[in-house]
Amino acid sequence: MTRILLDSLPWSDAPWWQEVVIRTGRTPHIEGWAVDAAGRWSVWAPLLIGVALVLVPATWRVVRILVTLVHELGHAAVGILTGRRFTGFVVRGDMSGHAVTVGKPHGLGLALTTWAGYPAPALVGTGLIWLTLRGWAPAVMLATAVVSVLCLAFVRSWATAGVTLLVAASAGALWWWRSDYRSGAVLLVIAALLLLGAWRHWAAVAPSPRGSDPADLARQTGWPGWFWVGTQLLAIAAATAGAVWWLWNATLA
């Protein structure tokens, strides 16, 4: 069906479009990673690298900004989906940041937008695992590059612009110089980083949610901060369980 839709486009015969299709198409044989021990390691080794990046303090101080980036863009995405207007965002290396959406100063849309930040990295990480195991790593690289370029219009600091541009350039390069296993391995590293990073971000606010998203939700709704911390925990746990399920079926079942 996807192929039929692509072939029906008016520019489907253009050389530049053919190059895009070649570099973006699905790779079904990636699902064969689970066939033997070497295939299993091609999945688990990148995941272990991602876990190490989060657990080692020196590397965590560097890579945690990616978790913050997804956190803030999670606010932005849900804000847009609920009818709010996204106007800008900032990320900082100390795990702090903010995304600004404009709309009603109360209501379900604002609550969902505020709630989405902490679960976003876990949900994205699980999605990356699912897409990678099904051969969509090149398409994810292109989508990441395009979204990152679009986000440059909303950055509100030079550091945020630098991080966003680096993500766009890296994803674009991996897409253009296509290597399915290389792209898949990179996405699995990032997936593990986002999943475990989501737990670390959540754990940093869970004991005392004052000044955090759950505290904002408590002010908006009247429900206590611990309730919102708990719902975010359930979302992160569900995303993690989904990732484990897909990995089990792909490599161990």
Rank of each mutant, 00 (worst) to 15 (best):
G74T: 01
V35L: 12
W228D: 13
L131T: 01
A250Y: 00
R3Q: 10
T59F: 02
P46L: 00
G242N: 14
T240G: 11
R200K: 06
H71M: 06
A169S: 10
T114E: 03
A168V: 11
A38I: 08
V20M: 13
V205D: 10
G172I: 14
A192V: 07
A241T: 03
I236A: 04
S96I: 06
G127E: 02
I4G: 06
S96W: 00
L252M: 09
L233K: 12
M141W: 08
P207A: 05
R134P: 06
G211C: 09
L110N: 12
W60Q: 00
I190D: 00
R40F: 04
W177Y: 12
W226K: 11
A120S: 10
A215W: 14
A243C: 09
V91E: 06
P15F: 12
V63W: 02
T144N: 07
L110T: 09
P224E: 15
S183Q: 14
S42G: 09
I236L: 10
T164L: 12
P121C: 06
G109R: 07
L166R: 07
G32F: 05
W158C: 13
A173F: 15
A203N: 13
T251D: 07
A241N: 00
L217K: 12
L128N: 04
P121R: 04
A241Y: 05
V147P: 04
W175E: 01
V78Q: 03
D180E: 15
V140L: 13
V67F: 00
V78F: 07
F89L: 11
L152M: 15
T251P: 09
S183T: 02
T113K: 01
A38N: 12
W177L: 04
A206Q: 14
H201I: 05
G83F: 06
G32E: 15
E72W: 01
I65K: 00
R156L: 14
R134W: 13
W33T: 08
I22H: 12
T160W: 11
R85T: 09
V186G: 01
G39K: 02
I30Q: 15
A237Y: 03
G97W: 02
I236M: 11
L150R: 05
L47V: 13
V229T: 13
A143N: 06
A159W: 07
V100Y: 03
T114W: 01
S148L: 15
R156T: 14
T59S: 15
L112I: 08
W246V: 15
A235S: 14
V205Q: 14
E19S: 13
T114S: 03
A37N: 08
V35F: 05
S170W: 15
Q220W: 14
A250D: 01
